[in-house]
């Protein structure tokens, strides 16, 4: 609360996420016993290459632990979450178990510092590593929200330089009067810290100790981290809280005594920082894919993106006439086709072109609303918009039937006249037979005699013949 009043956002550093390297998500743990001011101090340094997928802030004893003011050993919290490496995390109120400061755990906002200015370390949704001081507004940012965030006390290293003095000015509480904060910075003790190096790898630091007897102060820790290429780091809870767990097993020497003071026992703490196997972001791939080694493999043909939360129906994107869904383009009313690029065929309208036009005389209708374009028969039948089939049908209906009728009438007339003439002809013939007249036709094949007879009797044809 000694912070100078500044306009705008609070001072912090954002570090772009490292380029993803397949298989580089595992934690690399180094153990050290180093000399600080002539004292041998043991500890661990852990680097994580893909922090967005392998680093989590955990509530004590699992989700809901802060709300329930739980305290749990790092081992218990880490084991349930499957942590490969785990350390104690943020500060907490020992009497009540309250988590202090900001806590965002796997994209869940758990605890809010209420604008209190202490050093923060977090990872945003896009993998950006953020270190420093954050306003309330920045903590609650929804455009690129924090997926992991926790609070420490004292910004140890800022952009490759020790930043303790500036932190004391920002985070102190009447330092000159009480001396409490100054002692906190300078006393030797067990310490933990979190930060990142120049490669964008997350770095966890832990050093064993006991307040005022063993361990290191914040200056020594900052110098050690600088030698390890750390560019931004904050100090986390220390003293009896400092705990390091490797593969579910306590791997440090806690400074709190057990009830039997012969032994040392790990403290039940609040939040935990955890390094685990790569997880997808979000872990369930938004419900539209499968997480395979930290990468979402999207299901279906249209879900895309690292989180399988983007629908992609191809370059045409439904031709601006539809909505891309997980089953493909859902076309607007009046449009059809896999890309919604085709208008409804004439005679059909509506969503999916499923509704037939209900217009008189085959008039076309609006493909979107179904409103009839024209109601006059003449316009519809000869309108150029009418389909060829419809035009053919109308032509067939009028001309062909007329021609067919005329042809049939003509044939009928011919048939009638032929029958009448045949009838009249046969009647005349019969009448001639009834009159009793005979007609004789002389045979012509009579050895040529006929010619001689005809010459002798040319006047009467009946005389040469006798009954």
């Amino acid at each position: 609360d000694c912070a100078r009043v500044r306009a705008g956002s609070r001072e912090h550093e954002s570090w772009a996420p490292p380029l993803a390297t397949p298989g580089a998500g595992r934690a690399a743990v180094r153990t050290f016993v180093s000399h600080f001011g002539g004292r041998a101090v043991a500890g661990h340094l852990t680097r994580v290459a893909d922090p967005l997928r392998t680093f989590s802030v955990l509530e004590p004893g699992g989700p809901g632990g802060c709300a329930q003011r739980r305290r749990a050993t790092v081992e218990n919290t880490a084991r349930a979450a499957g942590c490969l490496v785990a350390q104690n995390g943020g500060f907490f109120r020992m009497s009540t178990g309250d988590c202090l400061g900001n806590v965002v755990s796997d994209a869940r906002r758990v605890s809010d510092a209420g604008g209190l200015q202490n050093a923060q370390f977090g990872i945003r949704r896009d993998g950006t590593l953020v270190t420093g001081y954050l306003s309330e507004e920045e903590v609650l940012d929804s455009e690129n929200p924090f997926v992991q965030l926790l609070s420490g006390v004292v910004w140890l290293i800022r952009n490759g330089s020790v930043y303790i003095n500036e932190s004391q000015a920002t985070e102190c509480d009447e330092t000159q009067e009480t001396g409490s904060f100054s002692k906190f910075v300078n006393v030797m003790s067990a310490r933990t810290a979190v930060g990142h190096d120049r490669k964008g790898q997350l770095v966890l630091f832990h050093a064993d100790g006991q307040t005022e007897q063993r361990g290191i102060n914040l200056w020594e820790m900052a110098e050690f981290l600088l030698q390890q290429d750390v560019v931004n780091a904050i100090n986390l809870d220390g003293g009896g809280s400092a705990t390091f767990v490797l593969n579910g097993t306590l791997a440090s020497y806690p400074s709190d005594h057990c009830q039997d003071s012969m032994w040392r026992c790990p403290r039940h703490v609040s939040t935990v920082v955890c390094v685990h196997e790569p997880r997808c972001q979000p872990p369930d791939c938004s419900g539209h894919g499968t997480c395979v080694e930290g990468r979402c493999e999207c299901s279906g043909s249209f879900w895309r993106g690292a989180a399988c939360n983007e629908l992609d129906c191809g370059s045409s994107n439904c031709s601006r006439h539809g909505l891309c869904t997980e089953t493909g383009c859902r076309c607007d009313s009046g449009w059809t086709g896999s890309n919604c690029s085709e208008e409804c065929p004439l005679g059909w309208y509506g969503p999916g072109c499923q509704r037939p036009c209900r217009c008189e005389h085959q008039c076309p209708c609006d493909p979107q609303t179904g409103d009839c374009i024209s109601s006059q028969v003449k316009q519809c039948l000869w309108a150029p918009e009418v389909t060829p089939r419809a035009a053919e049908l109308s032509f067939f209906t009028r001309t062909t039937w007329l021609a067919l009728t005329l042809a049939l009438v003509f044939l009928l007339l011919i048939s009638i006249s032929a029958n009448v003439s045949l009838l009249l002809g046969s009647r005349g013939e019969r009448n001639r037979h009834l009159d009793g007249d005979y007609v004789y036709h002389p045979l012509q094949e009579m050895n040529g005699d006929l010619l001689a007879i005809e010459k002798e009797q040319p006047g009467d044809v009946r005389e040469p013949f006798k009954d």
């Binding site: 609360d1 050993t73 081992e75 500060f91 020992m94 510092a113 209420g114 604008g115 209190l116 200015q117 006390v153 004292v154 985070e171 509480d173 009480t178 409490s180 904060f181 906190f184 006393v187 003790s189 067990a190 006991q210 307040t211 809870d237 220390g238 003293g239 009896g240 809280s241 306590l250 806690p254 400074s255 709190d256 005594h257 057990c258 009830q259 039997d260 003071s261 032994w263 040392r264 026992c265 790990p266 403290r267 039940h268």
Partner: peptide, 24 residues
């Protein structure tokens, strides 16, 4: 192993217990 209750006796506090910092 090492899972007994601790005495919480190695306290390393940045601020005095009695003080409550004002949020801004």
């Amino acid at each position: 192993l090492g899972s007994g209750a601790s005495r919480d006796d190695d306290l390393l506090l940045p601020y005095p217990r009695a003080r409550t910092r004002q949020a801004r």
